[in-house]
Design a binder for these strands. Structure first.
Length: 365
DNA sequence: CAGACGTGGTT
DNA sequence: TAACCAAGTCT
């Protein structure tokens, strides 16, 4: 054994810790996932694609995002095209993906980049952070991935990897600043974007929430939680309390082959999206009270209550919807603020999934 | 800061 | 199967 090797072996701990960035990049070069928004090795990254994918991936799985990303890119190949689109078109394309404020902010961001930045994304973290829908994580992610700026975005995956690597006992979200600092130590002198994506890939495929595959991990020699054997217990975080069940009614009103719909308020739950008329959604809602909130069709409507209920789970509360149906005469006027749409074209409407469920139940046998 | 904000995949 | 979780942001 050469003296140099012997020296390295005596200093194993510090040498390993310092070589983490290189170990990570080596692993990434061998195991990186091929994703629609990810440039092939050596290929130039497109800030528009990076931005679009990062917005879609906020709290949303890679598998779910894939088809939406492809649809958006085919219809709006660059930020100029998207900035010239109508908000309604964007919402219709986004329908089903959830967290609809992202779609409104996506459109607002494209308009801003077009109008205030000549159609070119800012190439600094600070500049990106000013744009709608871009928070601290996304600003760092775009800066690192699209512009190779030496910064480390910290998402849920990286929080998990780092909290295990250092066995961080402090619970989230208090531990965020410390995790951010420690995550930044995993950056090498170059390839910031690859370092970030390497950690995310590692978190999603190896350092998983349950039963992490530690034997395959390039950082396993040096992981505090693994040495203790309680990897799965990190990151520490308080369990969140479930929301209270709310009940309401949805009104499926047909006029021949058309359906009565309206647009929800711009802000708040399902903001700006299309819906069928609904009652308030309240805890301890009474069916009869809900029926009193049916739209006024000049008393011509005979209501039929469908058997069963439609259930849906939002992030912060579960919902039970009773479905009332009615079929009204041809030429019946839509009440103020509502409109008739052909049932055949419902697929193209900006209908959130809860509304699609309600409609399917109401129109079904 | 903690709660609002969708939906589907996974264990 | 009932949680838990996902490349978070906004207020």
């Amino acid at each position: 054994m050469s003296p140099a090797v012997a020296k390295i072996e005596r200093q194993e701990k510090p040498v390993v810790a310092e070589s983490r960035p290189a170990l990570l990049l080596d692993w990434y070069d061998r195991h990186r996932r091929r994703l629609p928004w990810r440039a092939a090795a050596g290929e130039r990254t497109d800030p528009y694609r990076v931005w679009l994918s990062e917005i879609m991936l906020q709290q949303t799985g890679v598998k779910t995002v894939g088809p939406y990303f492809e649809k958006f890119l085919a219809r709006w190949p660059d930020v100029t095209a998207l900035g010239r689109a109508s908000l309604d078109d964007v919402l219709r394309m986004w329908a089903g993906l959830g967290y609809y404020s992202r779609a409104r902010n996506l459109h607002a961001c494209a308009v801003t980049v077009l109008r205030d930045h000549a159609g070119v994304f800012p190439d600094t973290e600070e500049g990106l952070r000013q744009l709608p829908g871009i928070g601290p994580y996304t600003a760092k992610a775009i800066a690192a991935i699209a512009f190779d700026i030496r910064t480390m975005p910290v998402d849920g995956n990286i929080e998990r990897v780092v909290s295990r690597l250092y066995a961080i006992e402090e619970p989230l979200p208090q531990a965020k600043p410390r995790i951010q600092e420690l995550a930044a130590t995993l950056l090498g002198p170059s390839r910031a974007g690859d370092s970030a994506q390497a950690l995310m890939d590692l978190g999603s495929s190896i350092c998983t929430p349950k039963k992490p595959a530690c034997t395959l991990c390039p950082l396993n020699d040096d992981c505090s939680a693994r040495l203790r054997g309680d990897q799965e217990t990190f990151p520490r975080k308080a369990p969140k309390k479930p929301g209270m069940l709310r009940r309401g009614a949805a009104f499926i009103i047909t006029r021949g082959d058309e359906l009565l719909v309206r647009t929800r308020a711009e802000k708040g739950l399902l903001g700006g999206m299309t819906e069928v008329p609904v009652s308030d959604w309240l805890a301890r809602q009474d069916d009869k009270v809900a029926l009193e909130q049916a739209p006024d069709l000049n008393g011509v409507a005979r209501w039929h209550r469908k058997a069963g209920v439609v259930t849906h789970v939002f992030t912060h509360f579960p919902l039970e919807l009773v479905i009332y149906t009615a079929d009204v005469a041809a030429r019946t006027r839509a009440p103020e603020g509502m409109r008739w749409v052909p049932i055949a074209t419902l697929a193209d409407e900006a209908l959130p999934n809860v509304m699609r469920k309600a409609i399917a139940h109401g129109l079904g046998e």
